[in-house]
Amino acid sequence: MPEAPVPFPSLQPSALPRLIQAVATRYGGASRYTRHYVRAKLLRDPATKAIVTLATELGGFGTVGDLGCGRGQLSLLLLLAGGAEAVLGMDRNGPALLEAQAAARGLPARFTAADLATEPLPDCDTLLLVDVLYQLPPEAQRALLERMATAARRRIVIRAFDPDLGWRSRCGFAMEWLNRAGRGDLRRAAIEPMKLPALRAVLERAGFRVSVTPCWGGMPLPNVLLLAERGSA
């Protein structure tokens, strides 16, 4: 029997563990690594609670474009929580997208292979970009933001890397280096996260009201959650 979405804005924090378990169960046919990753990521990443809480406060995200969606677990959580009406996920990782689509059976979700630097972005109420922007070359970061500002009907939600948070930023750069070393990916250019004033300026010039809140939980990282909503500043 399909999981019943939780009506917004009635979602309570106590419901989140049950919903995470419901999402994890949907990946039962995926690889062992994916099954572990999906559950651990949703449980441990501060972005999970922060984004679901934000959706609750806003009365839902409407239709969502999840850019760089990976295995799609956050999109599916939003759907089961009632925080999204429908989802289109985009990513370059074909095998991950296949696992996401299999896990989304019976839900209004579609996952498609796409290069965010070149493919048209979906016309959605909310565009979601989590831990993707800072991975792009500097010129591509600005270009993607400008395209998102055109495509998003109501809002943009970004979990970004703030390079100006002192020791937190130094920890973030070090962890990124370690992650790349573990993948044997050190030949790729070092990350150059866009500074938050410049990031905000792109969206504010496009007519968005922008707010930024910490999104690192108990971790020594420089992650922040940026919400940009259409309307006069």
Score class of each variant (00 low, 15 high):
Q141A: 10
G231D: 11
F111Q: 06
I20F: 05
R142Q: 13
R39K: 15
I20C: 08
A181W: 13
R187G: 11
I20T: 10
N179M: 12
C171P: 01
P46H: 08
F173Y: 13
P122W: 02
S169L: 02
P7G: 07
R159K: 14
R39C: 13
L54K: 05
K49Q: 14
P138T: 01
E99D: 01
R142F: 09
E146T: 07
D66P: 01
S232W: 08
G68K: 06
T150V: 15
R153G: 02
V6K: 10
L203V: 12
L221E: 08
A86T: 03
S232Q: 13
V38N: 02
V6E: 13
V202I: 11
C124D: 12
L144I: 12
Y37R: 11
P7Y: 03
R142G: 09
R92N: 12
G29A: 09
Q135K: 14
C215W: 05
A40C: 07
L196W: 12
N179E: 14
D125L: 05
L76M: 05
A160L: 02
L97G: 02
P214K: 08
R205G: 08
R35C: 01
D125A: 10
E146D: 07
L42A: 04
D185K: 13
R188V: 09
L227M: 04
P120C: 02
L144Q: 05
P13T: 01
P122G: 03
I20V: 15
M194V: 07
C69N: 03
S31H: 06
G231M: 02
Q73S: 15
V38W: 03
K195I: 05
G82C: 12
T150P: 01
K195D: 11
D125W: 05
A30M: 05
T118S: 13
E229D: 01
L58N: 01
M194G: 06
L145N: 11
L19W: 00
L128Y: 05
V132S: 10
N93Q: 10
R200Y: 08
Y33C: 00
A22I: 11
A24S: 10
R18A: 14
D66A: 00
A96G: 14
C171E: 14
L136T: 04
L78S: 09
P193V: 03
R200W: 07
L97F: 01
V87C: 05
D45N: 15
T53R: 14
K49H: 12
V6L: 14
V6N: 10
K195W: 03
E85L: 12
F111M: 06
G28M: 06
A140C: 11
L76E: 03
A143W: 02
G72C: 09
A84M: 03
L221K: 01
G72S: 07
L186F: 09
N223C: 09
N179K: 14
R44K: 13
M1E: 12
Y27K: 00
W167A: 15
T126W: 07
A114T: 00
R147N: 00
Q135A: 15
T63N: 12
R39T: 04
V130K: 12
R155N: 02
T48R: 07
K41M: 12
L127Q: 06
T213K: 15
M148F: 00
E3L: 14
A117F: 04
F8A: 14
L107I: 00
Q12K: 12
A55N: 04
L16V: 09
L136N: 03
D185Q: 14
P108K: 04
L80N: 06
L128W: 04
N93D: 15
K195T: 11
L43C: 14
R180G: 07
A143Y: 00
G62T: 03
V38P: 10
